[in-house]
Write a protein that binds this DNA or RNA. Sequence first.
DNA 1: ACATTAAGTGATT
DNA 2: AATCACTTAATGT
Length: 209
Amino acid sequence: MKPEELFASVFEPALFEQVLKSGKQMTLHEGKPFLQLGDVVRNIPLVLEGKLKVTRMDEEGKEILLYYIHPGESCAMTFTCCMQQFPSEVQMTAEESTVLLSVPMKFMDEWLETYPTWKSFVMKSIRIRFNELLKTISQLAFHKLDERLVIYLKEKSRVSNSSLINISHEQIAQEMATSRVVISRLLKALENDGKLLLYRNQIKLLSGF
DNA sequence: ACATTAAGTGATT
DNA sequence: AATCACTTAATGT
């Protein structure tokens, strides 16, 4: 998508111009990192197309999904940590082919003071992420894995606007920070319940879902 | 036909 | 719920 469609209405004209001037448009192909673990944050991404996956490592070096950054969004984590030049504890990679504007973070302070719309953009993305975080925590605290899987599948089907989900058990397991075997078993149980149908790399949600 | 990757399953902790 | 070890099924070359 063009930057105009996504940002022209949220940024004031002067800021929008600045964003275009200082942001470097780039395309990341699937699996390419934007920010690696330990990198000092120097740029913030404004996603135009595709999506960025934000993950962190747990103690044993396993990757755990934090959230996605969709077109029109930026990264709350980088806002909060980049101002103090700390090495990143998170990692961002392109989930699919992704187009973004990379804005040097040196403009952050200046824009925060100069442009009210920038400030509210930043605050809004932090607020949204924070709320999502609270939701996730309550999920972890109150729902069992099988319930979480159902929620996960509903969400996947909602965003893709289709009852057919293209994903492997392995991928699901990684995103939910569990093992493939467990996911396979839970899915099998759901299939036996007549809730869905399983294929290789594909899951078809049935009406009862 | 063979290799590789995804998915299914029993047994164990 | 996780891990291991193994099987079976689907897909790529």
